[in-house]
Write a protein that binds this DNA or RNA. Structure first.
Length: 585
RNA sequence: GGUGGCGUAGUUCAGUUGGUUAGAAUAUCGGCCUGUCACGCCGAGGGUCGCGAGUUCGAGUCUCGUCGUCACCGCCA
């Protein structure tokens, strides 16, 4: 062994011990007649000291040390004359008797310390150096603990951890697949899984009863701060269960993770229908840390000759508590904010509810004090509050009001990272109409079961059919989702035909699954959590990159290893591939 | 595919209305220093202002293009 102790464990009780440490040089403080060296490893920092009693050879060697050298230090633990209360090893130091440079280091491009001077690009390029920093490493330690908590919990509930293939088959539904050419099967391709969906259902048919896997999934779509081309799911499936059973089980899992890793107790998870989430929060992933609900005031405000409102399909409002004092500048700022192309609202109407009980609005020309009072009653606004109103087509306005609500919540400091408000959003629509291709798409995926009471609607009004599908949402982040599955091959066929598959297409794409259903399929349901998002939420971060050891950038590139990259002509030839790159304009 | 921000010393940034030799902090190197722990003090070196074109007597600064990066919309469960 290169060491007898780590750099984080020596204490005053060890005084007098002969020890050997190994680690990285954090900093050298040369005071002339004596020199201090901070030696770092993942466990902590221990101070080494050279003074007039130290062997000359050691004193000479210490001068040559630079940042991030890897050294072995041998010496005696002793009590410090001046102690450092800020670190656990601060009462002791090592009087050096021998020092060995195990590996010298070039000067790092940024400093390895908590408040590093490195920008994002540089830290990504030298990710292995960034990972030496406590702050970054701690995120990955948290991730490891959370993965352990998942396994402990699910193992205790008789789940079987099963691996499923990574080289699978491309399917047309859902996200774009990453594809992998097959050398042995000329002209054919594997796809990397967007999720192990069909395999976990087959495991249920195989009688595994309870399955889970912490598994990499792949989607070839454009990226965001919370989206990577490869990401990790906690993937689960259960047999002989209904929606309620799944939600209880995974509420238990979530609660267990909060308790084990953050020592946080969270309230029972409320169930909110999708329709309510959309109407009151303007989102299918509501942030329930604060109220400021959206109110439909369409009927209240129409008929006063204000043409903008009278011609609108929907008029909605939110009430920002205590914001009546907003200045003209602030209100203009909000107006411009909602008029940005990303939100795309035409404008913003405000009503200030003054402390003296009067109202001041941007539409005073059309509305009396009594009219505005009615608005206030409708939105629950009291003296000192600010009502913000938008009008237009309903779907768009709910979306815009939802965004404005989040922005106001942010401005008012209502989105506290240390508060966790989980909920289940349930009763999602089964299908989603796509204007462009004039067909229905599965909102969740094609194996999702409709609610039994809505099955009749599949023939008459498919868009109205609700699914036994559910999402776990925490603090406005979609953490995961799942559904009760179809286990009847007749119903599954019907679903495929609603999605516009011909019998032949369905057979070619999912024949193996439909066939399997004919050999005795148990009722089953499942769920998958986005593990990266869950870890970043627990860590209080806005990006999942910081909880992934080696993440990719905005464009799906790994700037450290520089991938993706071109391959040799011979490799392409072996795969019978020819590039056909389009000319850039 | 689209919109916007950023790109200046190893690093993080400042740089006025377009005007002399592009600055600060930090890091690095050298000197001094016996209790530092963000050590301190003195000194030094360090620049293709992302790249290319244009406007101009003159461009870090203005315009266009391009590359890189980040955020968002489209896309994605």
């Amino acid at each position: 062994m290169y060491r007898t102790h780590t750099c984080g464990e020596l204490r005053i009780e060890n005084a007098g011990n002969e020890v050997t440490l190994a680690g990285w040089v954090q900093r050298v403080r040369d005071l002339g007649a004596m020199t201090f060296v901070d030696l770092r490893d993942r466990y902590g920092i221990t101070q080494l000291v050279v003074d007039e009693n130290t062997d000359k050879a050691v004193a000479v060697a210490i001068v040559e040390l630079g940042r991030e050298f890897v050294i072995q230090a041998i010496g005696t633990v002793r009590e410090r004359q001046s102690k450092n209360k800020n670190i656990p090893t601060g009462e002791v130091e090592i009087a050096l008797s021998e020092i060995n440079v195990l590996s010298p280091a070039e000067l790092p491009p940024f400093t390895i310390q908590d408040d590093t001077d490195g920008g994002d690009d540089l830290r990504m390029k030298y990710r292995y150096l960034d990972l030496r920093r406590d702050a970054v490493r701690e995120n990955l330690v948290l991730r490891s603990k959370m993965a352990h908590a998942v396994r402990n919990y699910l193992n205790s509930k008789d789940f079987i951890e099963t691996e499923t293939p990574v080289l699978i088959k491309s399917t047309p539904e859902g996200a774009r697949d990453f594809i992998v050419p097959s050398r042995m099967n000329e002209g054919q391709f594997y796809a990397l899984p967007q999720s192990p969906q069909t395999f976990k259902q087959l495991l249920m048919i195989a009688g595994f009863d309870r399955y889970y896997q912490i598994v990499k999934c792949f989607r070839d779509e454009d990226l965001r701060a919370d989206r990577q081309p490869e990401f990790t799911q906690i993937d689960c499936e259960m047999s002989f269960v209904e929606q309620k059973d799944v939600l209880e089980m995974f509420e238990g899992l979530t609660r267990h993770m909060f308790k084990e890793t953050l020592n946080v107790e969270v309230d029972e998870f409320p169930w909110m229908p999708y329709s309510e989430a959309m109407e009151k929060y303007g989102s299918d992933k509501p942030d329930t840390r604060f109220e400021m609900l959206i109110n439909d005031i369409t009927e209240t405000v129409k008929g006063k000759d204000f043409v903008v409102f009278d011609s609108a399909e929907y008029i909605g409002a939110i009430c920002a508590k205590g914001c009546a004092e907003y200045t003209r500048k602030q209100l203009d700022g909000l107006t411009n904010w909602v008029k940005r192309p990303q939100i795309g609202a035409k404008g913003l109407v405000y009503v200030k509810c003054n402390e003296d009980g009067t109202f001041k609005s941007s539409v005073d020309k059309f509305y009396s004090q009594d009219d505005l009072k009615a608005w206030a009653e409708k939105t629950g606004a009291e003296a000192g509050d600010l009502i913000l109103v938008m009008s237009g087509d309903k779907k768009h306005m709910l979306d815009a009001l939802g965004e404005l609500r989040l922005e106001m919540g942010k401005q008012l400091g209502l989105r506290d990272k240390n508060v966790f408000k989980p909920l289940w959003v349930v009763d999602f629509p089964l299908l989603e109409w796509d204007e462009e291709s004039k067909r229905f798409y599965a909102m969740h995926h094609p194996f999702t079961s409709p609610k039994p009471e809505d099955i009749e609607l599949m023939d008459t009004d498919p868009g109205k059919v609700r699914a036994n599908a559910y999402d776990l949402v925490i603090n406005g982040v979609e953490i995961g989702g799942g559904s009760v599955r179809i286990f009847d091959s007749e119903l599954q066929s019907k679903m495929f035909s609603l999605l516009g598959f011909t019998k032949e297409e369905a057979e070619a794409q999912f024949g193996f699954l439909m066939k399997a259903f004919k050999f005795g399929a148990p009722p089953h349901a499942g769920i998958a959590f986005g593990f990266d998002r869950l870890v970043s939420l627990f860590a209080g971060l806005d990006t999942i990159r910081d909880v992934i050891a080696f993440p990719k950038n905005n464009a799906g590139r790994d700037v450290m290893i520089d991938s993706p990259s071109a391959v040799a002509e011979a490799q392409l030839d072996e795969l019978n591939l020819k590039l056909n790159l389009k000319e850039k304009k």
